[in-house]
């Protein structure tokens, strides 16, 4: 009963204040009701500053994944990353991880989205399975199995550039269902000038958990759409060209991957189009495979720092 009374109070306070502030009566009330239904929380009596905050987030219902700030994307990415590391543990060789970070962060600097909230980071995962994940905000994971598909630095650069392209396209955030986005933004609006109360924090954490599930289900279980994968391959070619790598490295890696993928394994094969199909789709952009030169110093550092993993 108490909860209902509070909710009614919020409706009333919100309605009065909103009609005074916005002069849009029914439409605003409808928006408010939708917001409050979605979050299903005990908001408690609201102050005028809280109502003002609600007005400001009044468009939350219509918002998309783009409404998450880079800072929020970062926290989503950390948790998606922690989940990815739960699936395959980190391979903690400092030399190999430093190498992959210098390579990866140089590629990211040449992307269309070089600045994320806390920058791009790369981590090798200790698994023979062929797989890679790009979590929002720039946390990128590559298994030892996938690194073994790369015979040189240009091929490995192609793998990383593909994953950077998923971050650039915010493909992870796109996987979050609209209802979570609406919930999250509504709760943030309810917060007013105060820190989150326990109940609001609990509600927001539930929304967070569901958002993470949306992303990990897409990343790990279902994979992105074929359109997203093709876009990521094409964006990767652009990044490789900007840094000076041969885009042919992507074809080289895919050819190796085709030879190494085992049917029925729970890895890249399940979440990506077949390497053969990707090679065919890339032909108009790269042309057929032709060998590309590999300067000796580049080959030597690849052999020294990472080829052995």
């Amino acid at each position: 009963m108490k909860k209902n009374t509070r909710r009614n109070f919020l409706y009333t306070a919100g309605t009065c204040a909103l009609s005074g502030l916005l002069f849009t009566g029914c439409k605003t009330l409808d928006t408010m009701n939708k917001m409050l239904e979605v979050v299903k929380i005990d908001a408690g009596p609201v102050s005028s500053s809280q109502v003002q905050s609600l007005v400001k987030t009044g468009q939350a219902v219509a918002k998309t994944f783009e409404s998450f700030t880079p800072e929020q994307e970062y926290y989503i990415g950390r948790t998606v990353g922690a989940t990815a590391l739960g699936r395959y543990p980190p391979f903690n060789n400092p030399m190999a991880n430093t190498y992959i970070n210098v390579l990866g962060q140089t590629l990211a600097a040449a992307s269309d989205r070089p600045d994320t909230f806390a920058g791009y980071r790369f981590q090798i995962q200790d698994s023979d399975e062929i797989n890679a994940f790009a979590a929002p905000g720039g946390f990128i994971f590559v298994t030892r199995g996938l690194i073994r598909c790369c015979k040189d630095e240009d091929a490995l650069a192609a793998v990383l550039a593909h994953e950077i392209s998923h971050v650039q396209g915010k493909d992870g955030l796109r996987a979050i269902k609209q209802s979570r986005i609406t919930s999250a933004l509504t709760i943030i609006g309810l917060e007013g000038a105060k820190q989150f109360g326990n109940k609001n924090l609990a509600a927001l954490t539930r929304t967070f958990e569901k958002s993470i599930s949306d992303i990990t289900n897409t990343l790990i279980v279902n994979g992105y759409s074929r359109t997203s994968e093709k876009k990521a391959d094409i964006a990767a070619i652009e990044i490789l060209n900007r840094v000076g790598y041969a885009p042919q490295g992507l074809l080289e890696m895919l050819t190796q991957m085709q030879a190494r993928l085992k049917p029925g394994t729970p890895d890249f094969a399940k979440t990506h189009p077949s390497p053969h199909d990707r090679i065919l789709a890339l032909e108009p952009w790269i042309g057929p495979y032709i060998p590309y030169p590999q300067p000796q110093p580049r080959l030597e550092r690849f052999t020294k720092y990472i080829a052995w993993v």
Partner: peptide, 30 residues
């Protein structure tokens, strides 16, 4: 919104997730 407080609360309920690995990863600045 999705911030450190939310992460802390989520972590308390999901102790099996490897956040230490993410913290280590963040140290690989270039």
């Amino acid at each position: 919104g999705f911030n450190e407080n939310v992460e802390d609360r989520f972590r308390a309920d999901n102790p099996h997730l490897n956040f230490a690995g993410i913290d280590r990863m963040e140290g690989y600045g270039v």
